[in-house]
């Protein structure tokens, strides 16, 4: 078992790192929204969008190779759109003789466009995650009217993720250490139901530990004056410079989007 809890965050001092988080979050969402509004098949426009994304990635000092590798995460979901190839009516491009399916040209365009959109969106999301700590991100969301209680809950989750993942990891290792196999057998014993049941016990055990910890944490909060209100220092005011910097890529995307719709 592998605990994949590595933050995407890359330490840095680039302009994008230092940009006001509220601006960054808003810009990210607007960029992804523009990508999703792009009409299918406008390959030149897609290329421009990608170029801007690459410029942003480079400006943030994030290794482009790692972004590209990471951006493949959504690829398996392409299976869900695969049927578009054969279900969208249009001039046939390719016959699959044995099953009698026809790949149509508009079908291929739709399919490729969905994949491109997904791929671009992930890259944009990575830029945000790589230049912003989740803690900053969360409180920026507060300025965007995400409920304060929800943000407080998520920051608790983030804090205890590592504690509980560590506990889970140690439990899994203890299970592994006791999973003997008969000589010459690859199996570590038990059928599927039994293995799932052992995992279920571990989940139950982890639940109880988490539940009991939450009680102690509540006491520690109460001991420092917590009475149900979440208090935070107010964020500094938005600077016009940050607003303008954030508006740059958004405007560029919007222009490309408009051009793609009209040309």
């Amino acid at each position: 078992m592998h605990v994949n809890l590595v933050d995407q965050y890359v330490r840095g001092t680039s302009t994008i790192h230092r940009l006001d988080t509220r601006v960054k979050v808003t810009a990210t969402l607007l960029l992804i929204l523009s990508v999703s509004l792009m009409p299918a098949g406008k390959w030149v426009a897609f290329a421009f969008l990608w170029a801007i994304t690459l410029v942003l990635t480079a400006a943030a000092g994030i290794p482009i190779g790692s972004v590209l590798r990471r951006s493949l995460i959504a690829l398996p979901f392409a299976l869900a759109a695969l049927t578009l190839l054969v279900t969208v009516p249009g001039p046939p491009l390719l016959e699959l003789p044995r099953v009698g399916w026809t790949v149509s040209e508009p079908g291929l365009v739709r399919f490729a466009s969905i994949l491109l959109k997904s791929w671009l969106s992930v890259q944009i999301a990575i830029i945000l995650a790589a230049t912003t700590h989740l803690t900053d991100l969360l409180w920026a969301l507060n300025s965007l009217h995400v409920p304060r209680l929800l943000i407080a809950i998520i920051s608790f989750m983030y804090r205890y993720l590592f504690v509980l993942a560590g506990e889970g990891f140690r439990m899994a290792r203890a299970r592994q250490a006791r999973s003997a196999a008969p000589a010459g057998s690859q199996s570590t014993g038990g059928n599927l139901a039994w293995r799932a049941r052992v995992t279920g016990w571990m989940v139950g055990q982890l639940f109880l530990r988490s539940y009991e910890r939450s009680e102690r944490v509540y006491q520690a909060m109460a001991a420092r004056g917590y009475r149900g209100q979440i208090r935070r220092l107010d964020p500094p005011p938005l600077s016009p410079r940050d607003l303008m910097l954030g508006a740059l890529p958004v405007t560029a995307y919007a222009v490309i989007l408009a051009a793609a719709n009209w040309c």
């Binding site: 407080a152 608790f156 509980l164 639940f207 988490s210 509540y218």
Partner: peptide, 26 residues
């Protein structure tokens, strides 16, 4: 009540951790 924030937060972390407890299928 007041326990909402710590309990929900820590149990969310629990679900996250529990999702990582894999068991071999086939």
């Amino acid at each position: 009540g007041e326990r909402q924030v710590p309990l929900m937060g820590i149990l969310a972390a629990f679900i996250f951790a529990a999702q990582m407890l894999n068991f071999p299928v086939a």
